[in-house]
Measured scan of single mutants.
Amino acid sequence: KRPMNAFMVWAKDERRKILQAFPDMHNSNISKILGSRWKAMTNLEKQPYYEEQARLSKQHLEKYPDYK
């Protein structure tokens, strides 16, 4: 399994927040909201998630050095 990218790292927690506020919302609508919010964020706001992506990628490479 591939490591999560920056968007997926961010969306994991954001999806939970949306589901808590709107428990009956369909997944497709949640995904649209998440995509819009991510696009509206600045690079500075996204930076911590890119850093986490890099950490996860490094960890994955160490754990699975032959992964293609």
Rank of each mutant, 00 (worst) to 15 (best):
K1S: 08
K1Y: 09
R2Q: 13
R2G: 11
R2H: 12
R2A: 12
P3G: 07
P3E: 15
P3S: 11
P3I: 07
M4V: 10
M4E: 13
M4H: 06
M4Y: 09
M4Q: 15
M4A: 12
M4N: 11
N5P: 05
N5A: 05
N5H: 00
N5E: 13
A6F: 01
A6S: 04
A6E: 05
A6P: 09
F7R: 03
F7D: 03
F7S: 00
F7C: 02
F7T: 01
M8W: 07
M8K: 12
M8Y: 03
W10E: 01
W10M: 00
W10Q: 01
W10N: 02
A11T: 01
A11S: 08
A11N: 06
A11L: 04
K12Q: 13
K12E: 14
K12N: 12
K12P: 02
K12V: 11
D13Y: 15
D13S: 08
D13R: 03
E14M: 14
E14W: 08
E14I: 13
E14Q: 06
E14K: 12
E14H: 10
R15P: 00
R15K: 07
R15W: 12
R15Q: 06
R15F: 06
R15N: 03
R16P: 12
K17P: 00
K17T: 06
K17Y: 02
K17E: 03
I18G: 00
I18M: 09
I18H: 01
I18N: 01
L19Q: 15
L19W: 03
L19T: 13
L19E: 12
L19G: 05
Q20R: 09
Q20A: 11
Q20V: 04
Q20H: 06
Q20F: 03
A21R: 09
A21V: 09
A21Y: 08
A21K: 12
F22P: 02
F22H: 15
F22D: 15
F22A: 10
P23K: 05
P23G: 01
D24R: 07
D24S: 03
D24Y: 02
M25Q: 03
M25G: 02
M25K: 00
M25S: 06
H26W: 05
H26V: 11
H26P: 14
H26A: 14
H26F: 04
N27M: 09
N27R: 11
N27F: 10
N27C: 10
N27P: 14
N27Q: 11
S28V: 08
S28W: 13
S28N: 12
S28I: 08
S28K: 10
N29Q: 15
N29A: 15
N29E: 15
N29G: 10
N29K: 15
N29L: 13
N29R: 12
N29Y: 10
I30C: 04
I30V: 12
I30Y: 00
I30R: 00
S31Y: 03
S31I: 06
S31K: 12
S31T: 14
S31L: 11
K32S: 08
K32V: 06
K32D: 11
K32M: 08
K32E: 10
K32F: 05
I33N: 00
I33G: 00
I33Y: 03
I33V: 08
I33C: 09
I33K: 05
I33A: 03
L34S: 05
L34V: 01
G35C: 13
G35E: 10
G35P: 10
G35K: 15
G35F: 14
G35A: 14
S36P: 03
S36K: 13
R37C: 08
R37H: 01
W38I: 00
W38D: 02
W38P: 01
W38V: 00
W38S: 02
W38E: 02
W38L: 00
K39A: 11
K39N: 11
K39R: 11
K39F: 02
M41L: 08
M41R: 01
M41F: 02
M41K: 02
T42I: 00
T42N: 08
T42S: 14
N43T: 14
N43W: 11
N43H: 14
N43P: 13
N43I: 11
L44H: 08
L44C: 06
L44T: 12
L44P: 05
L44E: 15
E45V: 04
E45Y: 02
E45N: 03
E45W: 07
K46W: 00
K46C: 01
K46P: 00
K46E: 02
Q47S: 06
Q47G: 08
Q47Y: 03
Q47M: 09
Q47N: 03
Q47P: 01
Q47V: 06
P48G: 04
P48T: 04
P48D: 05
P48F: 04
P48S: 05
P48R: 04
P48M: 05
P48E: 04
Y49D: 02
Y49H: 04
Y49I: 05
Y49N: 04
Y50V: 09
Y50N: 04
Y50M: 06
E51R: 07
E51K: 04
E51A: 08
E51Y: 04
E51H: 05
E51V: 07
E52M: 07
E52G: 03
E52H: 04
E52W: 02
E52P: 02
E52Y: 04
E52C: 04
Q53C: 15
Q53W: 13
Q53H: 15
Q53A: 15
A54T: 05
A54P: 02
R55L: 07
R55G: 07
R55N: 07
R55H: 10
L56R: 08
L56I: 06
L56K: 05
L56D: 09
L56M: 13
L56T: 05
S57L: 11
S57A: 13
S57P: 06
S57I: 12
K58S: 09
K58F: 07
K58M: 11
Q59R: 09
Q59W: 03
Q59T: 09
Q59P: 11
Q59C: 08
Q59M: 09
H60Q: 09
H60A: 11
H60R: 08
H60K: 13
H60F: 06
H60T: 10
L61S: 11
L61N: 12
L61A: 12
L61C: 09
L61D: 15
L61I: 10
K63G: 05
Y64F: 10
Y64A: 14
Y64M: 15
Y64E: 14
Y64V: 14
P65N: 08
P65V: 10
P65G: 12
P65W: 05
P65T: 08
P65A: 10
P65I: 07
P65C: 06
D66H: 03
D66L: 06
D66P: 12
Y67F: 15
Y67Q: 15
K68G: 13
K68C: 03
K68W: 02
